[in-house]
Amino acid sequence: MEGDLQVDVGRRVRRIRTERGISQEALATSLEVHRTYLGGIERGERNLTLRTVERLADRLGVEVRTLLGATPEG
């Protein structure tokens, strides 16, 4: 359904961020965005560019495919 990917990516960002003990403010600062913008990402309210997904993955220390929910091809 429309918007499901945004919500799924946001949930993954929040889960990974909290698992790593990173505050929303700290991650937002490292991305050079406002904390409320990051909150919007985590709630699935923001339509992200691929560049933003790449930056998020880099700052969280995960592969882009992890944020997108892709499984490695076998």
Results as ranks from 00 to 15, higher is better:
Leu56Asp: 04
Arg12Gly: 08
Met1Ser: 09
Val9Ser: 00
Val62Gln: 14
Arg20Ala: 09
Gly3Gln: 10
Gly21Glu: 11
Val62Trp: 13
Asp58Tyr: 07
Ile16Trp: 02
Thr18Trp: 03
Pro72Gln: 06
Thr36His: 01
Leu60Glu: 11
Gly10Asn: 06
Asn47Tyr: 11
His34Gln: 14
Arg17Met: 08
Gly3Thr: 00
Gly74Tyr: 09
Thr18Tyr: 08
Glu54Ser: 06
Asp58Gln: 14
Gly61Gln: 08
Arg51Asn: 06
Val13His: 04
Leu31Asp: 02
Glu73Thr: 03
Arg17Gln: 06
Arg46Met: 12
Leu60Asp: 05
Asn47Met: 09
Arg11Lys: 11
Glu54Ile: 08
Arg15Ile: 00
Ile22Lys: 15
Arg43Val: 02
Thr71Asn: 13
Gly39Trp: 02
Val53Ile: 13
Thr49His: 12
Arg55Leu: 10
Leu38Met: 11
Gly69Thr: 03
Leu56His: 03
Arg20Cys: 06
Thr29Glu: 15
Arg15Pro: 01
Val13Phe: 00
Ala57Met: 05
Asp4Pro: 06
Glu2Phe: 10
Gln24Gly: 03
Gln6Ile: 02
Val33Pro: 01
Arg59Ala: 00
Arg11Ser: 11
Ala28Glu: 01
Glu54Val: 08
Thr66Tyr: 03
Gly44Phe: 05
Ser23Glu: 02
Thr52His: 05
Thr29His: 15
Gly10Leu: 09
Thr29Tyr: 15
Met1Val: 05
Leu31Asn: 07
Thr49Pro: 04
Ile16Met: 01
Ala26Cys: 05
Leu60Ile: 08
Arg12Phe: 10
Leu56Tyr: 08
Leu50Asp: 13
Leu31Cys: 00
Met1Cys: 03
Gly40Asp: 11
Ile22Leu: 15
Glu63Asp: 15
Asp58Lys: 14
Arg15Thr: 10
Thr36Gly: 01
Thr49Leu: 10
Gly69Glu: 02
Asn47Phe: 08
Thr71Val: 11
Gly69Ala: 03
Glu25Cys: 01
Gly44Leu: 05
Leu50Ser: 13
Gln6Lys: 13
Arg14Gln: 12
Thr29Val: 10
Arg55Cys: 00
Arg17Phe: 10
Glu42Leu: 11
Gly40Leu: 07
Arg65Tyr: 01
Arg12Trp: 04
Arg43Thr: 12
Leu50His: 14
Glu73Tyr: 02
Arg51Gln: 14
Leu68Pro: 02
Ala26Arg: 13
Gln6Trp: 06
Arg55His: 05
Gly74His: 13
Glu54Gln: 13
Glu54Asn: 01
Arg20Pro: 04
Gly61Lys: 12
Glu45Phe: 00
Asp58His: 11
Gly21Arg: 12
Gly3His: 10
Leu50Thr: 11
Leu60Thr: 05
Leu5Ala: 08
Met1Lys: 09
Leu48His: 07
Leu48Phe: 05
Val7Ala: 09
Leu60Cys: 11
Ala28Cys: 02
Thr18Ser: 12
Thr52Pro: 00
Glu25Thr: 12
Gly74Lys: 13
Leu31Gln: 01
Arg43Met: 13
Thr29Ser: 14
Gln24Thr: 00
Leu67Trp: 07
Glu42Gly: 05
Asp8Gly: 08
Asp4Asn: 12
Glu63Gln: 14
Glu73Gly: 04
Leu56Asn: 06
Glu63Lys: 15
Arg55Glu: 07
Val13Arg: 01
Ile22Asp: 14
Leu38Trp: 11
Met1Pro: 10
Glu32Ala: 13
